[in-house]
Design a protein around this nucleic acid. Sequence first.
DNA 1: ACTAAATTATTAAATAATGATAATTTGAAT
DNA 2: ATTCAAATTATCATTATTTAATAATTTAGT
Lengths: 260, 260
Amino acid sequence: MSGFLRYKKILDLFSEERSSWTVLEISKALETPSSTIYRIIREMVSAEFLESAAGSYFRLGPAFIKFNRIINFSDPLVRAGQPFLKKLADENPITSVNVLARLYGNKVMCVADYKSPSFKKNTSYQRGKLMPLIYGATSRAIIMQITNRKLQDLIYLENFKSDEDKNNFLKDLKNDRKKGYCFTEGQVDKGLIGFAVSISNKKLGIKASLSSIFDLDEFLLEHEPIIYANLASYGLLVEKYINEIFEDIQKYHHETNSIR
Amino acid sequence: MSGFLRYKKILDLFSEERSSWTVLEISKALETPSSTIYRIIREMVSAEFLESAAGSYFRLGPAFIKFNRIINFSDPLVRAGQPFLKKLADENPITSVNVLARLYGNKVMCVADYKSPSFKKNTSYQRGKLMPLIYGATSRAIIMQITNRKLQDLIYLENFKSDEDKNNFLKDLKNDRKKGYCFTEGQVDKGLIGFAVSISNKKLGIKASLSSIFDLDEFLLEHEPIIYANLASYGLLVEKYINEIFEDIQKYHHETNSIR
DNA sequence: ACTAAATTATTAAATAATGATAATTTGAAT
DNA sequence: ATTCAAATTATCATTATTTAATAATTTAGT
């Protein structure tokens, strides 16, 4: 264990389910002597990436809140898409959860979300949550942008029930790519359905999706065209704004570089 | 430069004002050879703490969004206080911005906020933003909990206009400590006034504040008692919930330890 | 005030980081 | 497709840091 990995492995222990650890627990989990862990933890506490909690436990530190904010105000995808999620929700024919998501390692991460105030069911899509790569429209609309070779690498570790299952998945993906949008039913949350379109920007290396999730009980077939129309138009709008943000950044860098 | 600091120094370059950097720029800023920076950046990109943006620039990576979420769902202060901010806003006599804040190094950081939808003016208090230690009711209600010795260390670097200024500040702070609440006018944002109470939990090492910020133009003297009453009662409520969360955590740790 | 647990300090040995330079890859403009 | 500069990676001897066993100290709960 060396370099940044040393620190990352400790941070990765902290999860929603288990959000505080003692040095001894970390030491056991990583099979590393506690004197070493004590030293590393001390470093991370002084950097505010960890902080001590009650009873010799440690938890994640406020540095993450600070950097999260900077991302919120600077990440092109979040900046461009965030403001439209409420509008999309308001224009959808029934209550919905609306999500911007992107790749994170071999998972999909929601980077912004807006839920209609009266949406009743629980949904897994919340900002910062990692979602499975091969289930749900939100994920499909992202991975359908990825070319075959890289896709193979990405889904290498996914355990499909059978080869047939995997081939069907790939065939469906190919069809979705042609259509330009995705639909799935109950793949992530029982009783919910999802519609999604791709969001991309080559220059910024963005491969993402915009999706709306509905309660199956409220959904009627006649809603479908409106849903698709909304997603398609807001998808394009988000892409347009990403591009504007990209140009702003370019201009800014140009200015700051010529000042010197 | 060694240990975690190596990585933190790079991350600290990224700010709201300057959210993307090239390797060469980082190399210059930190006076470190670019071959070293390239190696470090590569590590951080693979850990998703940084990611490459367009034109050989790098920006903060999605790891921060993920860990921020875990904090949201696990930090006792955020968990306990977040749900009450809207209620506090709704019960205030005029539109307001309501903030939970805590110490972050020698600054004060807002960790949760709720703004009445119709609040018009801009305010500096937004989640994740660092605020000055010695200005604003939000900060005062935090530092008034700190005993003299530690307070001296904390404000050591603050530049007061004069020694008299500093002494007045300390005297006012002592008074506020007696009263149990703080009021300031226009110290952080022109045209805004702030009211705040302390939030603390000894076991969890929490020193924080709950504050309401109002537009001076809307404010009438008759609002004052209601504002104080709201802050006082919600402050106590938040402390009560922090304590319940503390006990939950204790119970959880007890269980997981006895399983083994 | 006592005690066990938590944390820090100290070390030589083991390991990793550094940075100058060379080699390679990438990407933008023909 | 070709070119060329800029970006990135690879190499490697030198230098500096990390490791982990142990001892010393501090902290926190009765």
